[in-house]
Nucleic acid binder design. Structure first.
Length: 882
RNA sequence: GGGCGCGUAGCUCAGCGGGAGAGCACUACGUUGACAUCGUAGGGGUCGCUGGUUCAAUCCCAGCCGCGCCCACCA
């Protein structure tokens, strides 16, 4: 006997351990079956599960379990990411607390610490994924810094280098002065900052009291100015072009150049040019062959290229000093308040500096071309489709990808330098040494490039590196290209785009056929979850409280295309209750011996209610098929929810009670078998969403084996329109009867005889056939059928059933006033609806232009409404009499 | 500036050319041998505003108002 309550915590761990131990997650190897593969977006190895992971992995698991049940060779490839900057920062912070630091430790010792930390905490996130129920093939778990994956990284780097698609260049990059590393454009966040726009007067050389005014939001950078630019067509400055301005505080001669970059509409129309510290100015500098004066060191303090008083100052200190000195010289023309965007590093949290350094770049534009084409040709499709636009937009305007980072944790760049700086890019030091020996004609000492690669470089290889590339493995052959990538829109650029580039370049084929983009998880009020706001909901707390099934179902049911998921705990609670409801339905079935019967064919059911529920199961299953086929997780979840609760529990089981109470042994046996079959089907349909409770109940309602490996059901020829119509008719009758009873406070215990006035033979037959069900669910006694036109007994309440009026003689309990109001309201409502139909039917344009089927539909509807109105009116007249 | 999306019941959201829906919340009644983590019934909406297309607009189109996000730029 099932326990009275469903207790997720007790069962989940046990069921999961059993699946894993029995190898149910292992990649399939059924011969001849198609394969279905998802590579997990690898979470940070030292991270822990947040709501975004919970959503992402729930959706993947729904797809995976669904396909597994459909008999495909399923691989859900799990693994974790070394997450360069993030992990290094965590370990550095730990060292700081110990009063140490990475530089004190040295590179080798530091890396040992990171590995140690990885060993300690790397299992956290994968353990948490297990608690969610994720059915990954853990035997194939990978890590981006695994031996195998590192080999893939080296091979790709060297190959791209040899193909000229990776190169070293001295350019302006976004420099994080806190982390002391270059970061890519994507890692820079623009933040709105209230600041000022300062207008400075630069004296023009050789003309007494002549100044050219420039404006800036960053006064300190003036120390690095090497020109002033004006627009070539700007009359105001035409005669100054070719002359020089004198940079105050520094004394440098600045050529005044004409360049399109200067916008006559902005500020004074003249713009100071600081090639070393501004991306636009850098370009201007290149065009005019300007001097590049770098004024910052790696920590954004002033270096020796500025006049002595400013040296060593931190950038914001320097700003104050520059302003004070210019003010003293009377060179500040104006100060305006100004709101502008300041670039911040998304990890370091301080403004980044455009800074001139040597970095490694990947030629993203070249790699992007086939990746754009693949989506244009539909070889990879986005769901929802709109995201393709975002992808194109970025890919078509892609900039060189800065792939080197001045960090220690990551894949060290396989480049070695000879004594004269010649670079040798090889997969191993030995190869580099050989190459160097060939180059120099003798053995020389080499130094390895200290930089590591951007984390996303190894992530870009994930769909094939995890399958064994560069080796030709069976997995690679079977599962590449993978089927679906499930991820959030926030990493389309970081990750999806780059996997497309690398996959196409190295595998010659797209890495996945479909990219399913899901939304962000926000809090119940639509706010982004963040630690600072304190509105972070920990998915594991919800799992503890309501069970993993409830959380999974909530996430799936809230996943609608193009809309963020608002995580509201009351929804989770509601779906936990759904689990309880299912559990109790199972208990009911168990105690009534409603268990699957071997060899029972649902098509063979004779009873119309049994035939009806079988048809409903079929409709629900088909809806889930359709919805999952187009990634409508919400619709699939809602379909199984509504069927289980509203159709099966609310109606079928109530009907079954009356069947089971009958004397008809054949009917009882058929009902038991049908109910058992429906339970069995519900468990299959629900399993991808709620794997734990369904697997647990499968022990009772299954047909051998484990549910995770059961077949996905197919439904053919189970619909029975007549049975469905009859069931609907009975449900209508019962609902109406309940409604009026409730309205008039008729006690539940009071059984009332329904007097049916003017029923057609068909309606009468239906009512008689279902008399037992109706009497049980609507609390009535036997029907009394009366000729049309007969007056219903006095003191009865009435409702309309099809063409008939049903009277319930309830005697004293009737509240005539209340009932009259109710009926009057109903007549008014029906009248207004009839009027609506009339308006249409009187409209000649409607009659001539609307499709005939629509006109007929409205005619039928009108007739039906009139019949109902008349019946209600008749009932009302009866009441009015006394 | 470019792009995407959203304004429907108190809340969160479905629907998207011919009958305004769900869940939660709310109100009333109820512990009937599966389930109070429940049941039954009920109240509640000029479907953001203004025009247009149409026989017919919550739905399509345009404009406006309000809100959110992404990209780029702002000396």
């Amino acid at each position: 006997m099932l326990d009275k309550n469903w207790r997720p915590a007790e069962v989940e761990a046990r069921q999961y351990a059993r699946w894993e131990a029995e190898g149910d997650f292992a990649a399939g190897d059924a011969a001849g079956a198609d394969s279905f593969c998802i590579v997990i977006p690898p979470p940070n190895v030292t991270g822990s599960l947040h709501m975004g992971h919970a959503l992402n992995n729930t959706l993947q698991d729904v797809l995976i379990r669904n396909e597994r049940m459909r008999g495909r060779n399923v691989l859900w490839q799990p693994g974790t990411d070394h997450a360069g900057i993030a992990t290094q920062m965590v370990v550095e912070r730990m060292l700081e607390e110990e009063g140490s630091g990475r530089r004190e430790l040295g590179r080798e010792k530091f890396l040992e610490r990171v590995w140690q930390w990885k060993e300690e905490s790397g299992g956290t996130i994968t353990g948490q994924l297990r608690r969610l129920g994720a059915s990954c093939d853990w035997s194939r778990e990978r890590f981006t810094m695994d031996e195998g994956l590192s080999r893939a990284v080296l091979k790709v780097f060297v190959a791209l280098y040899e193909q000229g698609l990776i190169y070293k260049d001295e350019r302006l990059v976004n420099w994080d002065p806190k982390l002391h590393t270059a970061i890519s454009d994507l890692e820079v966040q623009q933040r709105e900052v209230k600041g000022h726009l300062w207008h400075f007067k630069y004296p023009v050389e050789g003309i007494e009291n002549k100044y050219i005014t420039v404006a800036t939001t960053r006064p300190e950078t003036m120390l690095g100015d090497t020109a002033v630019a004006v627009h070539p067509g700007d009359e105001r400055y035409r005669d100054l072009v070719g002359k020089h301005a004198i940079l105050p505080l520094v004394g440098r001669r600045l050529p005044i150049v004409a360049d399109e970059h200067a916008d006559p509409e902005q500020g004074s129309g003249a713009v100071k040019i600081t090639p070393a510290h501004d991306f636009n100015d850098f370009e201007v500098g290149r065009r005019h062959d300007l001097e590049v004066v770098n004024i910052f060191d790696a920590t954004a303090h002033m270096n020796d290229n500025v006049p002595e008083p400013y040296r060593g100052l931190e950038r914001f200190e320097a700003r104050k000093r520059v302003l004070a000195d210019l003010e003293a010289q009377g060179l500040i023309a104006r100060i305006d308040d100004h709101v502008h965007m300041v670039p911040y590093g998304d990890r370091g949290g301080v403004p980044v500096e455009p800074w001139l350094t040597d970095q490694w770049f990947a030629d993203a534009a070249t790699l992007a071309r086939p990746a754009i084409e693949a989506v244009e040709q539909g070889r990879t499709g986005f769901v929802p489709e709109n995201w393709a636009k975002t992808y194109y937009e970025w890919m078509r305007n892609i900039q060189p990808w800065c792939i080197s980072r001045q960090l220690w944790w990551g894949h060290q760049i396989p480049a070695w330098y000879g004594p004269d700086g010649t670079v040798f890019v090889k997969e191993t030091e030995a190869e580099a040494r050989t190459a160097a020996a060939g180059h120099y004609g003798k053995e020389v000492a080499l130094t390895r490039d200290p930089d590591v690669l951007d984390t996303w470089f190894s992530s870009a290889l994930w769909p094939f590196s995890t399958l064994g590339w560069p080796d030709e493995t069976p997995e690679l052959r079977r599962y590449y290209p993978t089927s679906v990538l499930v991820t959030g829109f926030d990493i389309i650029f970081f990750w999806v785009a780059r996997m497309m580039m690398m996959g196409l370049h190295f595998m010659g084929e797209v890495p996945f056929h479909t990219v399913y983009i899901h939304a962000l998880v926000r809090d119940a009020r639509g706010q982004k979850m963040s630690k600072s706001k304190g509105n972070v909901i920990d998915p594991l707390d919800l799992v503890d409280k309501y069970g993993a099934d409830a959380l999974r179902f909530t996430l799936a049911a809230l996943t609608m295309p193009g809309r963020d998921v608002r995580m509201d705990e009351s929804r989770v609670e509601g779906y936990r209750n759904f689990g309880t409801k299912l559990w109790n339905a199972a208990r009911f079935c168990e105690m009534n011996e409603c268990l699957p019967v071997e060899g029972f064919d649902p098509k063979s059911a004779k009873d119309s209610k049994n035939r009806w529920i079988v048809g409903e199961v079929s409709a629900c299953g088909q809806e889930i098929d359709r919805a999952l086929g187009v990634y409508r997780f919400d619709e699939a979840a809602n379909a199984i929810y509504a069927f289980t609760w509203n159709t099966f529990c609310d109606w079928y089981l109530e009907i079954a009670k009356s069947h089971l109470n009958s004397e008809d042994e054949v009917l009882i046996a058929e009902t038991r078998a049908t109910a058992g079959w429906v339970m069995n089907q519900i468990l299959r349909l629900l399993h991808p969403f709620m794997p734990f409770i369904t697997e647990e109940l499968w022990e009772l309602f299954g047909d051998g084996g484990r549910l995770i490996n059961a077949d996905w059901p197919h439904y053919e020829g189970l619909d029975d329109a007549d049975a469905a119509a009859e069931a609907k008719s009975v449900i209508d009758f019962v609902s109406s009867a309940r409604s009026v009873r409730s309205e008039l406070n008729v006690p539940w215990t009071a059984r009332i005889q329904p007097i049916v006035v003017g029923a057609s033979p068909e309606s009468r037959a239906v009512l008689e056939a279902n008399a037992r069900i109706i009497s049980a669910t609507a609390r009535t006694t036997d029907f009394k059928f009366v000729e049309a036109g007969s007056a219903p007994p006095e003191g009865s309440i009435q409702f309309v059933y099809r063409e008939a009026t049903v009277a319930l003689p309830v005697g004293d309990v009737i509240d005539i006033g209340k009932e009259r109001t109710r009926l009057q309201k109903e007549v008014a409502k029906l009248d207004s609806e009839i009027e609506k139909c009339d308006r249409k039917l009187d409209n000649e344009q409607f009659l001539s232009k609307a499709p005939e089927s629509v006109v007929d539909e409205i005619r039928d509807r009108r007739a039906e409404l009139v019949a109902r109105r008349d019946a209600v009116q008749a009932a009302l007249d009866q009441i009015k009499e006394p």
